[in-house]
Each structure stands twice: as C-alpha cells, then as structure tokens.
Nucleic acid binder design. Structure first.
Lengths: 198, 198, 198, 198
DNA sequence: GATGAATGAGAATTCATTCAT
DNA sequence: TATGAATGAATTCTCATTCAT
C-alpha cells in the first residue's frame, strides 16, 4: 500500500509545511520535493499531479482528524457533551497545527471547483460525526426534531468553519479553544434570551 | 468617477458571467474583454489587474447588496424581525443571481490569501448590518449579552455562508429562500429543546 | 492574412535555419524566436504549436517549389523535356537551399506519423506536376500506357527522393544537378539495354 | 553472444510490436519491458539505450532479410530474374510483417540524424545485393554500363522504398506483391515506349 | 480614450536511465 | 543476472500585461 512507503508520509508532511508557508499556487512541486528530500519525479510515483498532493494532504489529515475526534466523543454520553467535545476537538486540532489550519481554511479553498467536490466527499466522514451526535440528541429528546438534520449540521459546521477562518486570518492572535464554551452555548441555546422565547 | 463610465459596468457584467461559467482561473482577460465588447487593453483602463476585476465585481455587487438589505431591514422593528429579513435577503439575492452566487461562494475563495483580506474588508459593511441588528437586540433585551457580539456574528454569517455554499454545490436544486424560517429558528433558539435548557 | 504579416516570414526563415542546424527536436522554440527576433509568445500568434512551424515551413516552401517548377516546365513541350526539367528543378532548388534540403530530407521525416499524413497532403500539389507530365506523355504516345500512372509517379518521386537523401547524407559533397541527365535516362529508358528488350 | 540469450529476442519482438502500435516516441521503455515480461532495468543489460533497441530491431530483421533474399536470388540466373526476385522478396517480406513495415518505413525515419547514418550502414549489406545483381547484369551485357552503378541502385531502392511507404500509409489496403511485375517492367524498360527510344 | 499585437516569465510533468539490493 | 524504485534534466505553451498607434 502506497501510504505505507516512508516517502509518502515524507512528501505529505513537506507539502503541508510548504503550502502553509507559500500558499498552494506558489508551492512549486520542486519546492515540496526538496523539503521532502526526494527527487521531483518521485512525487509523481506517489501522486497523480500537484492537486493530488493537496487532496491527499487533506484526506490523510482528515482521516486522523476523524478517528481522534470520534475517539474523544465516545467518552461522552449526552449529545450536549458530545457536541461540546466536537467543538473543542475541532478547535484544538487546528490550533495545534497552524500550518494545517492555513491549508484547510485558506489554501484548500483556492482549488478548482471540481476539486472542491472531491474535498467535500472527503469531508463527509467528518460531517457524519456531527450527524451522529444530532441523531442521538434527537432520539434522546435533547435536540429539536422540528428541523432538518442537514440544516442543523450546516449551522454547526458553518459556524465552526467561520470562526476558524477568522482566527486564521487574524493571524491566530487569540486562543481558539477558549471559544468552545461560547460557541457551544450559542449553538445549543441560540442568540435569543430564553425568557423571550416563551 | 470611473464607475460612471459605460464600459465599466459592461466589463463588470461580462466578468460575472464569464467567471461564473468558467471559474476565475479559466477566465482569461481576453474572454471577458470579448464578452464586454471592448479590447483587451481597455480592461486595464478600468482595472489594475485581473484580480482587481474580481474584487470590483464583489465590491460593486456587495454595495448594492448592502443598500438593498439595509433598505429591507429598516422596515422591520424588532431584532428578530430584522434578522429574519436579513436571512431572507441574503438568500433571496443570491438565489436571484446564480452566476453571482457561484462567484461569491466558489470563485472568490480561490483567490490568493492577500486578496482574501481585501475581500474581508469589503465584507465589513455587510457584516456591520448583522452587528447593528445584534446591538439593537442586546439593547432591547432580546438578544443575550453574555456572549461576544463578534462571536454571534460569526455564527450567523458562518451559517448563512455554509448553507449557500451547499446550495451552490448541490447545483441549486432546491429553494434557498425556503430555508429562511428554519435557519432563523435555529439561530435564535438554538439546537436544543427549550425545556431542557432550564 | 497571417502570412502577409512580416513576422510570419521572419519566423519561417529563422525556423529553416535553426532546424537545419540543430534538427527539429533540438530546435527549441525559444531558439527560433531568438533568431527571428521575436518573443517566444509571438510564435504562438502565428503557429498552433511547434509542429505547426515545421508543417508551415514545408507548406510555404513547397508552395514556391510548385509554382517555380510549374513555371519552368510549361516552357517545355514534350513529356520527356518536361520530365527532364522537373528533375533538374527538383535537384536545383534543393541544391540551392541546403538548409531546406536537410529539413525536407531528414528532419521532416522525424515527425510523428499523424504529421506525416499532413505532409503528404501538402506534397500532393507537387506530385500532381509529375502526374500531369505523365498524362501528357501517355496521350502523346510518348509514355507507356500499360502501367498504372501512380506506380510510374512513385518510381519517379522515389528515385529523386532517394538520390537527394543520399546527397544530403553524403554531406552534399558532389553536384546534385549533374545527376539530372543520368536519372532522366534511367527513368525513361530503364536499366536494361534496349537491344535486349526486343 | 548476447543475441543468444533468450531475453534478447523477447525484447526485440516486444519492441517491434510496441513500436508498430505506438510509434517510436510514444513507446516508453517501460512499455516494451512490460510486453517482454522483463524489468525495465533488464533492457539495459541488453541494449545501450532506447535508440539501440530500435537499431537492434532493424539490424536483427535486416540480417534475416538479407539472408532470405540472397537465398531466393541465387536460385535465379539472369540479372533480370534476380531483380524480379529481389523486388518480390522485398515486397513479400514487408507485406508479411506489417508491424515491421511500419517500423522500417515510418518509425525508423523518425530517429535522430546520427542514427540515420547507423541505419544506413546496416542497410549496406542489403543494398549490396542490388549492387551484385547490377554488376552481374552489366557483365552479362544485360544492363547498361553507361550509368553509374550507384545511381542505378538508388533508382531501384528509392522506387521500392517509395512504393512500400505509400502502401503503409494507405493502410496496406492493397496487395503489395502484386506490384512486382509492373515495377520490374518500369525499372528495367523505363517509362518511355521503346519505339520512341530509337 | 481605445486598441490589440507583442511580450516573456514561469512551472508541471515525463520518462530514459541508474544502481542498490 | 535481474529487479524496479528513484532520479532529475529539460522544454513547451499560456496568458496577464504593456504600449505604440
């Protein structure tokens, strides 16, 4: 399996660094090869083309993202706690990998539309975690069942994504994980004051 | 003022069409010039460079977006109604301009990081509308004051943005404006069932 | 018309020189551009791609080849004289343009098979001259009518082509035009001694 | 002797097939290796480089061409019969190996100029057969002695070569061997009607 | 202002060849 | 001998931008 070969990982790691530093378009394949200590041509033994490197970085990282996040969540019982953990892990993992955060929030979006579709497919596994939490919450009577699950998931992911992008664009000057509680509050209880809801 | 000159609008409109159809990178300046019925060189009498076209499309469209949206909102009194109107107008305006939606949700994101900063600046006027609604809501005691206004705005914008992007990527197969109520509900009351909040 | 623009001819002439000197594959487009005193990109305003330069060189030169040869031939009356003139002109024109001879006899053959087909099409006008001579000769009772005209043409062209290629490969060390009479004799009377034929 | 080793022949045969099918330039060494069921590197134990494969194919095939042709010819006595047999064998052997015909008539010509010289050397043994026939014919008084032997040979070979190339490019749609008699007639008696010669 | 012919920088990718095993 | 993973040189072509008219 190609991802077992050591050079594969070498190239992936080099790519994250180089792309975060220079942006995708300014990241020449030769630059990535150099940082990975392989020949230019070697890249093409592992990746179809330059875009495939980007996709693969995302796939690879998303894979561990998913398993780590799932691991953390299953230690929680209620949907509320699970959501809290999801938010925390999302922020935590990106905050711990600023290079990766730059790649996912900025560089990955610069790809061609067709690529975006592939990216979305890879994202599905991750979004499924949200869906699972929501489903449990609905069954437990914790989460409202009068609204489309997909819509709820879009709010959650859209909110997290926007907050991370803002944080990246503000040059990561503040703690992202500190936002966890506020965001959890907002997502679960909404903008409006409860009394007013009655 | 340059935007009064007839060819300026011609080029802007041509650019929206060409970019929506081909994507930003595949939209050669010469293609835009052709569709606008001007010479290639003429583009550069109105725009600094190719990116400036993209920015200007966004600025131009955002300008009218902002004034139309503000117009609609001021007819409402409560923060809740205003937010509802904001959501509706956001969806409505993009749904009425599918080409523009493609440009804002997909193509505009493909720009270089430095450009994204400029885009964010243009966006500020639009985001200010959200902030104004939130401020009023807080003052009126309608909206919670225990959470950072910026955070709330990020949730609102992030949610809208994600829902529109999903809609564009799903090839606009369903009605976006129909989502207005659900999204308003979700944003204001949150995911969780009110009873559970106590 | 593009071939009227001065740069077109400039590039064609530069290409003949560069290709004759270096061979087609070793003739970088940039080298041709430099010799033609135009920018690399300018080449592509006049030619589809590198192969198109080669084709165009051939087309252009063949065009004048055809008209000059036709002009010379029409001053002759008998098929025999016309054939003699054809042979002479073929040798004379290539001997006067050693660079062109290298291109037609060696470099042009190195092109991809699909290209060879296009080359053959261009050649048709030239081969038609032979056919015209043969037809006249047959009608005049000068040339045998018991053999396929195409076959006769293949002998004539094949013989001329082979003699020129040999001359090019022997580094043009002898006079090609001096061969005219012998070749004419051979082609018209054959290898065998007439007496023996009876 | 390297040509005794089994993989040598394997590679040669694979090369003929691959080159005939794809053309020389599109015939990657790895493709030839795959078809020959050897590793890429193995090729280089038998051949200096990719061109050497092409040359060796030609050398190998030409070798058997020469011996088969010589064998057939020595059964004939007169120069006329020998020439007839030579023409027949030339056509027959290429018509029986369409792949080889493609390689000799089209692909082999696409090689670099230096290579063409080496090819010509290999060809010499074959051309010598023609020279031998001509020499005998001259001594026997069958063939004219007023014309350079080399020139006569060029006519013969040029004619055969052109007819075969035409046949290959016309996708081998007609019988090549059927041409034998006409070509023999033409070469020996010439284009012109005998009566006219006097 | 308007034109559009000319410019020229810039980088992904292939594939013949090598060499450690 | 045989392998095949790794190498890295080498070049076309595009297209945003300019500037003489």
């Amino acid at each position: 399996m190609k991802s077992d070969r050591p050079k594969y990982k070498q190239i992936i790691e080099a790519a994250v660094e180089v792309i975060a530093e220079n942006g995708f378009h300014a990241s020449q394949v030769s630059k990535i090869a150099k940082k990975a200590n392989v020949a230019d041509g070697t890249i093409y033994l592992y990746f179809k083309n330059k875009e495939d490197i980007l996709i693969s970085v995302f796939k690879e990282k998303m894979g561990s993202f998913v398993s780590i996040t799932r691991g953390a969540i299953q230690e929680q019982s209620s949907a509320s706690e699970k959501l809290q953990t999801f938010i925390h892990m999302h922020y935590y993992q990106l905050a711990s990998n600023p290079d990766l955060a730059i790649v996912t929030q900025l560089e990955l979006r610069q790809s061609k539309t067709e690529l975006r579709i592939e990216i979305n497919n890879i994202l599905k596994d991750y979004l499924q975690i949200i869906d699972d939490i929501l489903e449990q919450g609905i069954q437990d009577g914790e989460i409202r069942d009068d609204i489309n699950l997909q819509t709820m998931r879009q709010m959650i992911f859209g909110t997290l994504d926007e907050t991370v992008t803002t944080w990246v664009m503000k040059l990561q000057k503040y703690s992202l994980t500190n936002e966890t509680n506020e965001i959890h509050q907002l997502l679960t209880k909404g903008l409006f004051i409860a009394d007013k809801k009655g």
